[in-house]
Design a protein around this nucleic acid. Structure first.
Lengths: 222, 222
DNA sequence: TGCTATATGTGATCTGGCTTACATTTATTG
DNA sequence: CAATAAATGTAAGCCAGATCACATATAGCA
């Protein structure tokens, strides 16, 4: 594992969960969501967990000033709503699709429990995933406590490069599904600051970007 | 549940875990720790979980600048090292006693698993506790993202009042086992700022404090 | 294709809380 | 009980990043 605050431990459950192994529960599989569609609301009871089979999903809540708290953004193969496995009764946050089309594998909780009982290895990897989520949150906390905005942004870009980056020549291209506002929310700063930093990094020849993609020219120096 | 960022959902497992129900595993029960003693190190493998039966335990890690990242401070009846249940192999942080004497109930992982298998209700409450830990961390994150230092301190004092406070007349007395440095670490600020704020709150007649205790004079207005 | 909404760019100003630098008070230890 | 260490108190100066106030660019839609 790298030193980066934002680095991911990729526990990709796509091939375990979806679509083959769970034909039995396939009833309401694969729902189609459009950008901005809500998947669940805070008051919904936590009756199922989801895996993203296509698109991106954002988990958010809103603080008392109506500002968005971005808890996570998830891509293909990642699960969310997993707190249902920890005895959560209500979701407590919003899940919404943030790319189009977004498709999910929903798993009802009892089915999930059965699956985990039947397949110990699978159960373990689910719990492991929860463990990784916790560690990730701990790193985010630490970065918020001790690192300045620029460092946080660089760490975050590195994380994205690992997760979603595609090598093209010496560069790493990240398809750009976040707005600068999203970046700001994720690293805990303001949009204007992100704009400023993006241009600063461009000046320093570390990245290049358009509204379509971000090109990381020198991952090492970020 | 209250609105406070810092409010606790008290899942006290003391009477479930300790000391009666687990006589079988009692071998190395109740170890005595002095203030500052390390209970585990980051490289230790996660072979057991602990419950505090007496005293206080601090979970920390250190960032690259050697600054302490305080992840949690736990009192009687609270468990720690629970990430072992989530497939963690190494602890990844330090646990150290921060009051004297501190005593623990250590539970080896296999025993724990057996206990959880045998007693479904118990297993559920353990997982629930992990869920609460996650929510608490989410609140801490949110507070760090959006609230200023004074608000964070007030929220934290409210949390402590709930957890450890004793009503004395119209006041709530909190025994004072944290130094101002500890407060600073926990809410993400510097010691000098905590001192200033403590005095500010004293001026405003909201609290009173000595090195022995903090008296909350007006919880509502904090 | 033009109109409108949303995303991005960029300066000027302001400020919470960090930094630095000590002083004072309370614990701890030989 | 003195000596030393640790915790607390206070104040001046500074700066990263927020805030405010626009300008421009791009996308989506009638």
């Amino acid at each position: 594992m790298r030193d980066s605050i934002w680095c991911f431990e990729n526990v990709n459950l796509f091939h375990i969960l979806c679509p083959h192994k769970i034909r039995d529960f396939e009833k309401d599989h694969f729902e189609g969501f459009k950008k901005g569609d809500f998947i669940y609301f805070p008051e919904d009871s936590s009756k199922s967990i989801f895996m993203v089979s296509k698109g991106k999903v954002k988990i958010v809540s809103y603080n008392s000033d109506g500002e968005e708290v971005v808890k996570a953004i998830l891509g293909k193969g990642e699960i969310f709503g997993e707190k249902a496995l920890l005895g959560e009764d209500k979701r407590g946050d919003y899940a919404l699709a943030c790319s189009e089309p977004t498709e999910l594998c929903p798993m009802r909780l009892p089915d999930m429990h059965q699956l985990m009982r039947d397949n110990e290895k699978f159960g373990l990897s689910i719990y492991k995933l929860i463990g990784f989520r916790i560690k990730k949150m701990e790193r985010r906390l630490e970065s918020l406590l001790f690192k300045d905005v620029k460092t946080r942004l660089c760490d975050f870009l590195k994380e994205m490069a690992e997760e979603n980056g595609v090598s093209v020549g010496s560069e790493i291209v990240i398809p750009y599904f976040f707005t600068q506002k999203d970046f700001a929310d994720l690293i805990g700063t303001k949009r204007e600051t992100v704009t400023r930093l993006f241009n600063e990094l461009k000046q320093e020849e570390l990245i290049d970007y358009s509204r379509k993609e971000i090109r990381i020219k020198s991952l090492e120096n970020l």
